[in-house]
Each structure stands twice: as structure tokens, then as C-alpha cells.
Amino acid sequence: MDSLELSTSLSVDKAEKKNQSIRVRLGRLRDSVCESGIFVLTASSAIIIVFIFIFILIKSWNIFAVNGINFVLKSGFDQQIIEAYHAPADKPVWHFGALGLLLGSGLTTVGALLLAIPLGIGTAIVITELSPRWMKGLLQSFIRLLASIPSVIYGLVALLVVVPFIQDNFITSELQLQYIKQFQLTGNSLLAGIAVLSIMITPVIVALSVDAINAVPHRYKEASLALGLSHWRTIVKVIVPSAKSGITAGIILGTGRAIGEALALSMVSGGIGNIPNPADGGVFFLTPILTLASAIINKSESMSVPSINAALFACGVLLLVTCTTLSLFTKIVERSIRRREGLE
């Protein structure tokens, strides 16, 4: 290599280096712009959420000021709404008790979870471990479809299928007469609510569980099989426990959907905030109920009355508090699981 060549190649090198450093700097600039952009978006959505909280709290403040803790300890929401609606403007009704609604939300959600968790995890196991490859895809797209069906469709189907089924199979006219002074046994009930909710949240649990199970490293499965565990015991003892945090996330997401579901439940659960009585035996499940979210929908047309407006916002506060608690709870559960597994 003669000197001329050397110097050209050096200067080319230098130019290249300069170019490169410019590229690097440009790249860094782009990164920092992206990062700060994302930060601004995140911050603003956090601020929006905080504002929503504050807004709803302000809107409902009077209810909590007047009723205090009794808002969640007393019942009779439906009649109170009617009274408030017909109350003269100078004597507004401010006393509300949402215990019935709170129990309605709680019972439908817990009931739906009891059905949906085994069903959801079972289905996820069938999809990931027990079905041939061609069926996997089919089942998974079917589950995704189910998860994306709007709740009003579930509500309609439940209204036309589940409610008449309950009426025909669990309710006799003697039973109806026996309870008519307390509530109407028509099939629109806690049970119908639980049924439609469990069908609605199962796909959510399935979808997240499938992802979680698929994410379990193949080496765990091999280790287990090589230790003489059958496929089924491997699923029960190794795969599902290893997918615990993802499955839990699915369950909690499903719980969120169940608590927040308004439309389908307002169609099938009866629309009156009765408190089911365990002493009634099976009739416990046949009691018409009303949930927080459904109450907001059903009674929203009465919102022109300020006290009803505030009462419905107070129901919203209860919903928000439950959801926030749930999502914090998820974080805690997930973290403790990961810590126990040694992933953190």
C-alpha cells in the first residue's frame, strides 16, 4: 500500500467515522425524542385518570357527606331512586343505600369466577397441551371471537335462552306464589347473571392462560416427563403452577370485566336490588338482583335529578375503588408469585 492510497483510505476512514458519529448522535436524538414523547403520553393519561377520579368524587361528594358509611351498609336503592325522582325540588331525597347493588356486583362476580376459573384453565390446558396442532389454531380463534363479542349480544342470548331455561327448570308456580310478596321469580335472577357473566369472562381467562402456558419453558415439561411424571401430572404439577402469574392476571382481568359489566347483567339479572337470603336455600340464586354498573345504566335517565345524579356517581366511585383495589391486588399477587419462584 503506497502512501497516497494510505492517506485516501485514512481520510475515507475519517469521513466514515464522522458520518458514523452523526448517525449515532441522530439515533440518540431520535431515541430521546421517542422516550420523552412516550413519557408525556404516559404522564398525561395518568393525569387524565386522576382527573376522572377527582371529577367522580366531586360529583358524588354530597352522597358520602349525607350518608357516610351507610351508603354501603343500607339497602333500598330502587325505591330511593323513585322517591328522589318524584320528590319536590325544595325537598330533595338524599338518602341512598347501595348495599343491595354492592352485594349484587359481588355475588355475580364471585359466582361467575367460581365457574369460569376451572372452565377457563381447563380449556386453556385442552388448547395448549391436549389438542392437535390444527385444532389449536381453530380453538384459539374461536376463543378470541368469543372474547370480542359485545356484551349486548351475550345479554340478548341469555335473555332468550338462559332466563327461560331457569324459569322452566328451577321455578314452579307454587314457588312463585310463595315469594311474590318479596320478589318475582321469573328467571331474571342472580343465577342468570352468574351464567352470562361466566360465559363472558371465560374467554378472557382462557386467552391469558393460553399465553401463560405457552410461555412456560419447554425444558420444565421435559424435566417433568423425564422424571417419570405422566403428561397429565406434568400439566397439573409443573406446567400450570409455572404459568400461575399469567393465569392470575387472566382471572383478575376477568374479574374486572365481571364487576364492570352493565349491559348484559341489566338485561338478565332482574333489575331490582334485592339482597339474596341464604336462608331461602336454592331461591337464593333465583332472586332478582341489580349490580352497581347495571344500576348506573338503568337509572341514568333519572340523572336530571341532582341527588340521583350524585347517587349514581357514588356507585361509580364504589366501582372505581373496587377496580383499583383489584389492580393493586394483582400487582401484589404477581410480585409475590414471582418472588417465590425466584424470578425477581
Binding site: S173, Q176, L177, I180, Q184, L185, K299, E301, S302
Partner: peptide, 13 residues
């Protein structure tokens, strides 16, 4: 008939 009467109504509004 000897059967319960299920009263249906509209919302307050």
C-alpha cells in the same frame, strides 16, 4: 289461574 302476578313497569323517567 292460581298463579303469581308479575307486575312490570317502566323506569321512573
Amino acid at each position: 289461574e292460581d298463579a303469581a302476578i308479575f307486575v312490570q313497569q317502566r323506569e321512573a323517567t
